[in-house]
């Protein structure tokens, strides 16, 4: 169960995240000046790259947790639940990266989508981790699911540079300046740079809060499953022969058999 310290730190992180996001929005939409080249459109820079950064951070966390589960010395079901939680949050942020990128691309490049290397990699990443989450929904016992999804998570992460390299070569001739290059350019206004940095921090806090919350839910779901299983075993040992009990048992078994949502 949730400890008091965990609950309070989660609330504190949530509060800070809320404040920072509000500040980013206010600064990004109203305080910072419009850009010389991009005009008002530049305001999207305060949300799009930070959201993309969080997506990569989340997948990084998933991979580290997968390794920690696969390594026998650090094997603990907690790593598996954390990997799953981080992947789910990562998929949300990857989706947002694609949406905001598309919204930005339309006025900036005149198209909703362009076959740029970074865009294509992000789209494939989105599908890769949707697959990872789908694999997690396959009913199996805890250890089996944990091992399989840890391997899948790890392979997906190893695949990312291969995918990226292939699409970079594929698009070499059409490569246009991508968003991140613009942010790294030294010409960026001081106020704007600060807001961008704030955006990175704000969305990272949002990620941490979501991860803590999602992990908490996964942990509770897991303990519900475990308690149900313990009760089943207990009931079976205590009264093995009454007819009415057996019908109750089969109902319970059906419930446990259902795909878990962890």
């Amino acid at each position: 169960m949730e400890s008091k310290g965990y609950r309070w730190s989660r609330r504190a992180v949530g509060f800070v995240a809320l404040l920072l996001v509000a500040a980013t929005v206010v600064l990004g939409l109203w305080i910072t000046p419009p850009d010389v080249v991009q005009g008002q459109l530049v305001r999207l820079i305060y949300v799009h790259p930070p959201v993309a950064w969080v997506a990569y951070l989340a997948y990084g966390v998933t991979s580290i947790c997968s390794v920690l589960y696969l390594w026998k010395r650090t094997r603990n079901l907690k790593w598996d639940l954390l990997a799953a939680s981080s992947a789910e949050v990562g998929v949300i942020f990857t989706g947002l990266t694609l949406i905001t990128g598309s919204i930005w691309g339309r006025p900036a490049w005149g198209v909703w989508w362009t076959w740029d290397a970074r865009l294509t990699t992000t789209a494939l990443l989105f599908v890769l981790y949707l697959g990872y989450l789908a694999l997690r929904r396959v009913p199996a016992d805890n250890h089996q699911r944990a091992v399989r999804s840890a391997i899948a998570g790890l392979i997906a992460f190893i695949d990312v540079p291969i995918v990226h390299q292939s699409v970079v070569w594929w698009r070499t001739l059409h490569q246009s300046a991508t968003v991140l290059n613009a942010t790294l350019s030294p010409k960026i206004h001081g106020e704007m740079a600060m807001t961008l940095l704030l955006g990175f921090i704000a969305f990272t806090f949002v990620y941490v809060w979501m991860l803590m919350h999602r992990y908490q839910i996964a942990d509770m779901e897991q303990s519900v499953l475990d308690v149900e299983l313990e009760q089943l075993i207990e009931e079976r040992q205590r009264e093995p022969e009454t007819y009415s009990d057996q019908t109750v048992l089969t109902q319970d078994v059906d419930q446990i058999d259902q795909p878990s949502k962890v």
Binding site: L29, R43, V47, H48, I103, W104
Partner: peptide
């Protein structure tokens, strides 16, 4: 577009 982006996020 800017509003749509922020709203989406």
């Amino acid at each position: 577009y800017v509003e749509a982006g922020y709203l989406a996020v």
